[in-house]
Nucleic acid binder design. Sequence first.
DNA 1: TATATACTTGAGTGATCGCTCAATAAACCC
DNA 2: GGGTTTATTGAGCGATCACTCAAGTATATA
Lengths: 190, 190
Amino acid sequence: MPRKPGYDRNDLINRARDLFWRQGWAGTSLKDLEAELQMKPGSFYAAFGSKDALYGLALDQYASDGAARLHALAGEHGPVEALRRFPLEVLKNPSAPARACMLSRTLLELQAHEHPLADRASDHLRGMEEQFATLFTEAQSRGEIDPTLDPKKLARKYQSDLMGLRVTAERRDVDALALASEFAETVGRT
Amino acid sequence: MPRKPGYDRNDLINRARDLFWRQGWAGTSLKDLEAELQMKPGSFYAAFGSKDALYGLALDQYASDGAARLHALAGEHGPVEALRRFPLEVLKNPSAPARACMLSRTLLELQAHEHPLADRASDHLRGMEEQFATLFTEAQSRGEIDPTLDPKKLARKYQSDLMGLRVTAERRDVDALALASEFAETVGRT
DNA sequence: TATATACTTGAGTGATCGCTCAATAAACCC
DNA sequence: GGGTTTATTGAGCGATCACTCAAGTATATA
């Protein structure tokens, strides 16, 4: 009886993610979304309910994409090499919406207003951190890094430095790739 | 002949800086500013011209404050110890508007729309970086750190890691001080 | 004290914000 | 093909955005 939508929902979410990632939450208006997704307001709200709801979906998509990419890298190159290559995946991609991390952007923009999406971003950051820790643990059991170090501390430091790198890479007067390869060298040491 | 303003202009800029620092550019409305500065729209626009103009002044104030604080630390404790203590100045202060750096916030929020304030933030970041480099150079001539390292690279890495630290410190599930002292230990090494 | 010169007030500007909804069109089952 | 169900359309909602301006008030000089 029903009528099928004329769009691919997952594709819409990915396009919205890129737009939000690039322009931020407040910086992306419904006009922007309507233009990017080729949807009129009625369809948009029938499909997603609200701008915030779509942002949440985009955030989840962003996080699970990152987790999948890191997992794939680890399977192909092992844990340490995966952690070294991970930053380059974004920084080397010229069509990436932004260098900075969408999760940290969201946290910075919405935390002060105690917006639920800030907590959602924070949760995803913790999830990524746990994935990093798992890789460090695996690297230790393989004998690739110092086994006396605390994987959780390594993971937190790795993530923190990575976010710094990705913010710095937003600057136009900075050679992001040079900074990234310098970052890669330090992974596993200290 | 004229009439003196009933406010201290510098105090207003400082209060605006704290509000912008905490809530961001889009996150701070003129209503917010009017309430915080106790000014009606007419007075506000007579005094500052526009929201962007005041944001620019606040940004400059933020940058020069930071530079002055770092300079004072260096005079008191020497370059390396200054660089070690610098992050704690913000993170230990419970009344600070935010943990994250206002310059990086501004860059992240406004860069995609090519807003002039993003460039202004970027310029200030470069200025801070140069100050860091100067301190590293001084530390080398004092023999406090490895003289073969490039002060500019050290400065960039220091600033990048510092920004990461300060973003991470925004998370409610993270012990910012533990991360900061860990960060302090690494200054001058590597 | 008179006057010129600012500062202050606050109602109100057009534009844009996220969002609604009644009307219309299209696709599925029987 | 008829009937049902859902997707799509787009004008337009109230609220808020940054901002303006004419009128009123206070202060310094003459």
